[in-house]
Simulated scan of single mutants.
Amino acid sequence: MSAPFQDKVCLITGAGSGIGRATAVKMASLGASLSLCDINYDNLSATAKQCASTPRHLDDVDVGSKQEVEKFIKDTIGKLGGIEFVFNCAGVNPTSIPLEETSDEYWDRLMNANLRGVFNITRGVIPHLKRGASIVNVSSISGIRGSAQQAVYCTTKFGLIGFSKCMALELGPKGIRTNVVAPGYIDTPTNAGIVKGGEAVTRMINGNALGRLGTPEEVADVVAFLFGEESRYMNGAVLEIDGGIKMSSTTSSGK
């Protein structure tokens, strides 16, 4: 089997389930060493078992905490020797809430995980990245088009695209690329529609041209592509992975 990422280190946040887990398994299959974090260590351990023969570092990390992120990055460098690829996948999926009923606590929770977490990780890894390194961030179709009663979530995902495009310009001259994946209706445990089940799942299935949910592995394949040489001239791009979303649908995506 080809190992294009042999002797390269890939740092993945939110690696305990869904797209983060699928990407860890994908990158391990391509030869990468892994530095994985999640707030749920049991889930993280389950991911690690699927990458059993891969050199790796695991840690339960709240990406919204500067101190925990700095320790995680320091330990990654100490154990694995460097960082070449970064996949910012940690985040909180939406709950549909009218704005006037939205609490300060809900705003803070989503901003902390979905935006501050990416900021903390990116700021922390930049001094360790060399020419040829690559960052991929997870936004959403909700970072491209709005959804009623999901103003806070959409704000974080729109903001993440803006942040990523700024990083593409700031880090590009150093030979470091930053790109974004924007998943649509993906079959993951934290997808809001999956959690609701029933009619919500049916709406998601009918909400795209392919007439099915996407899989975490299908997103992971795109992430691996963005890390690889085949995408070497892509920087600041936003790749929609949504099966051909229909504009009239309002059910949210999920990791």
Rank of each mutant, 00 (worst) to 15 (best):
E240M: 13
L11G: 02
V92Y: 05
S142V: 10
A192M: 04
I135H: 07
K79L: 11
E84H: 04
S33E: 01
I39H: 03
I97N: 02
T156G: 06
Q150K: 15
P98Y: 01
G16R: 01
K79N: 08
A192D: 03
E240G: 10
L210M: 15
G197D: 01
G146Q: 02
L11W: 09
L169V: 09
L58M: 05
L239T: 07
V195Y: 05
L44H: 00
I161P: 02
V181I: 13
S231T: 11
T156F: 05
N120Q: 10
T23Q: 14
V238W: 04
A151R: 02
K157I: 15
D38L: 08
G254A: 11
V223K: 03
E230M: 13
Q150V: 11
T188P: 12
V61E: 00
A220N: 12
P173F: 02
Y185P: 13
R56D: 01
K130Q: 08
T95P: 04
F85E: 04
S53W: 09
P183A: 06
R123Q: 08
L213N: 05
H128N: 05
R56L: 01
T215K: 15
L34Q: 02
E101Y: 08
I205H: 07
G117H: 12
D221N: 15
S164D: 03
A32G: 04
S142I: 15
Q50Y: 04
L169M: 04
G82K: 14
V222P: 10
H57I: 07
L213Y: 03
D104Q: 03
L210S: 06
D242G: 13
N208M: 12
I121Q: 02
F72H: 06
K79D: 11
G197R: 05
P98L: 09
A3H: 14
M234V: 11
S147N: 13
W107T: 10
G175S: 12
D59M: 14
D242Q: 12
S103Y: 03
S96C: 15
I245V: 15
M111A: 14
R145L: 13
S35H: 04
L160E: 03
E105P: 05
E229W: 11
T250V: 14
E230I: 12
I97V: 10
N179A: 07
L99T: 12
A200Y: 14
L210W: 06
A148I: 15
R116M: 15
N179H: 11
D60T: 14
S147E: 15
R232D: 06
A224H: 07
M234D: 01
A237C: 15
K66L: 09
C10A: 09
L99E: 13
C154V: 09
N88H: 05
G236N: 02
T155Y: 06
G159R: 08
S249K: 01
I121V: 15
Q6R: 14
A182P: 14
P189G: 05
M27E: 06
I194P: 00
I241K: 04
R232C: 13
G236C: 06
T250N: 11
E199G: 11
F119L: 12
G198S: 07
I126A: 03
E70N: 11
I83H: 00
L110K: 06
